[in-house]
Structure formats: C-alpha cells, structure tokens
C-alpha cells in the first residue's frame, strides 16, 4: 500500500490550462495599448486616474468581502483590477479623485458585490459606476481635457468638447455635416490613432483593436459581439447617411468616435454580462449597436454606448433562454 494517501476525484483528471485569473490578467494586458496611448496624450493624469480607480475597486471588493460576506477575499483573481481599469477608461482624466472613488464604490458595491460577487452581476460593473457618475456629475463627467502630447506637468488642462458633442450640437443647430467635419480640428486619421478629446481609454480605436485582437487570439473573447456591434452601427448609420448625408454623420465617424470601440471590444464582451451562445451574442451585439445609434442620433446625450450596453445586459437572460443551442440529435427525433 502507498504510504501517502491517494487523491480520489471524478473524471476528468486533466484540466485545460486556462483559469479565471489568467483571463482577467489577459484582459488587463489587452488594455495596455490603449492605456499607453492615454498616457501619451493625457500625461500623468491618465496614470493617476487608473491607479485611483484600480486601488479603490480592489479595496472595496476586499472590504465588502471581508465585512459583509465574511469570506476569504478573492481580490487576487484580478476581476476588480479589470473593473477599475475599465472605469478609469470611461472617465475624463481631469475627474476629481473623490468622484472616481464614489464611482468605484458604486461599480463594485452596487454593480457587482450586491449581486453576490464575480459572476453573479447582471450588469457590467464598470458601466454601472460610469453611468452613475455621468448622471450625478454630468459637468465633471463631460468636460474632457484637451490632449497634450507627452505633457507630464500637472496643470489644470484646458477642456474642450469631443467630436461627437461637436457634431451633435452642430446638427441640432441645422448645420450640414460636411461643414461641421471640415471645421473640426480632428481628422479621421487622428480619431483612429487617438488624437482627440474623450474619456481616458476610448480615444484610440487602433490601440483598442490591437487589444481586441490579442483577446481574440487568447480566446478570451469571441468575434461575435464586437463584429455585431460594429457592423450594426456601421449599417444603421450608413443607411441614415445614405438618406441624407448632411443631416446625419457618416458610419466611419460613428465608429471612430466616442466609446464605440471600447464598448464593443472591452465592455460588451464582458463574459459575465453577455449571452452564452454565438447566436445570442449576435442578437445582443446588434441590440447594442442599434440602441447606441438611436441615442446618438435622436437622444439627449451625444454618446449612448454605455446605456446601450446596460440596456442589453438586462436582456441577456432572455436572450440566453431564446437562443439555446440546438441539442445533438434533436432534429432527427422530431421527424
């Protein structure tokens, strides 16, 4: 007989090498390009906002688990870091620290832990925090600092409107789209690489796409949600643009500005709050795209990605029910 006692467990006895921690840190790694771009354009403020948001999220997660759940804190799984970074990515860099901390509290406390922690939250926690802040402090949340390349001096940066806000304002005043675009200081190339005002992490479409590709290769996300979101936005706005090119912005503008890329690649793909099947993910993605355009074009806010994702998050259980995978051997039996 063996001296050491043998382990006995049910099959399978082999396990894939992936785990939650690796996935979470993979997402963090995927966010790095966008983070670096933000540091490049917003300077130390970008680092400050990120550090505060991450520290606050991790702290609140630890605190709530310790005090209310009385369980062993699981902050090492990295999910709080992801939430913190996503929250930071969704705010302007000149946001006062205390607003950020409140945002983190709402994100972790209400958005995540009140439902039972990782995996149980119906809504994307970072977006819950973000939308809460947007509604509570609309001025601070929408005064975006102007970009300054590699400026590490801590100064009160000038603020300016985002291209999205400019277009919305212009179109509302009856100005034709082509004219607004011409008068705008940012070209489409600038928008692609991130040379424009906006929330910390959303400015560079290119950096976000690089991160998205990394996640695709690591199989952290599937192609369904980003493609569905981007394609539906492009098609919907394309139709509008085709109807009247002067009254509506063109698809490229919609895709490159605001939080579309960040939302489509990092926020809508959140595993916990997105549907389970490929078909469901497509429905969910299209929903996000359509609602985003509806808010952008006819709504009161210039940007609608966060709201669109939160609204579609609420539909996820329903989508899951409606798009159950077709069972093996199901069709033949019916014949």
């Amino acid at each position: 007989m063996a001296n050491n006692r043998l382990l006995v467990s049910m099959s399978p006895h082999d396990h894939g090498k992936d785990n939650v921690k690796k996935i979470m840190y993979g997402v963090v790694l995927a966010m790095m390009p966008a983070f670096l771009v933000s540091v490049y354009y917003f300077g130390l403020d970008a680092i400050r906002v990120n550090l505060i948001a991450i520290a606050a999220c991790v702290f609140f997660e630890w605190f709530i688990q310790k005090v209310f759940f009385k369980g062993k804190p699981t902050i090492t799984d990295g999910s709080a870091i992801v939430t913190g970074m996503l929250l930071a990515f969704n705010v302007p860099t000149n946001l006062p620290w205390w607003i950020l901390v409140i945002g983190a509290l709402v994100a972790i406390g209400i958005g995540k832990m009140s439902f039972g922690g990782l995996g149980n939250n119906p809504f994307n926690p970072a977006l819950v925090g973000r939308v809460f802040l947007l509604i509570s402090w609309p001025v601070q949340m929408t005064s975006y600092p102007k970009i300054q390349v590699l400026n590490f001096a801590i100064t009160d940066a000038e603020t300016g409107a985002t291209p999205l806000a400019l277009v919305k304002e212009g179109l509302k005043n009856g100005e034709p789209f082509s004219q607004i675009i011409e008068s705008m200081p940012t070209s489409y190339t600038d928008m692609l690489i991130g040379q424009m005002g906006g929330s910390l992490g959303e400015i560079s479409a290119l950096a976000l796409i690089i991160g998205g590709l990394y996640m695709l290769i690591r199989k952290i996300i599937t192609w369904h949600v980003p493609v569905a979101v981007l394609a539906s936005i492009a098609i919907f706005t394309g139709i509008l643009y085709g109807i009247n090119p002067e009254a509506y912005a063109d698809p490229a503008f919609h895709l490159l500005t605001g939080g579309v890329m960040l939302g489509a690649i990092f926020m809508a793909t959140d595993m916990v709050t997105s549907p389970m099947t490929g078909k469901g993910m497509l429905i969910y993605g299209v929903g996000i795209g359509v609602i985003t355009v509806l808010i952008r074009v006819w709504g009161a806010y210039p940007e609608g990605v966060s709201f669109a994702i939160l609204i579609m998050n609420a539909f996820v259980p329903l989508i899951n029910k409606a798009t159950k995978p077709k069972r093996f051997g199901e069709t033949i039996k019916k014949q």
């Binding site: 006692r5 382990l7 006995v8 049910m10």
Partner: peptide, 22 residues
C-alpha cells in the same frame, strides 16, 4: 483511519457516487 483524499465538491451525494469514501 483515512486511506485516501477526496477531491471534489463538498457534497456527500457526489462523493458517494464516486466511491465508498476516504
């Protein structure tokens, strides 16, 4: 005396389906 180590969910029903016990 314990002769093996059960590694699985904390459930008698599952452990009993696996084997006679540790």
């Amino acid at each position: 005396a314990k002769t093996s180590i059960y590694d699985g969910p904390q459930s008698c029903a599952i452990a009993a389906a696996l084997y006679g016990g540790d």
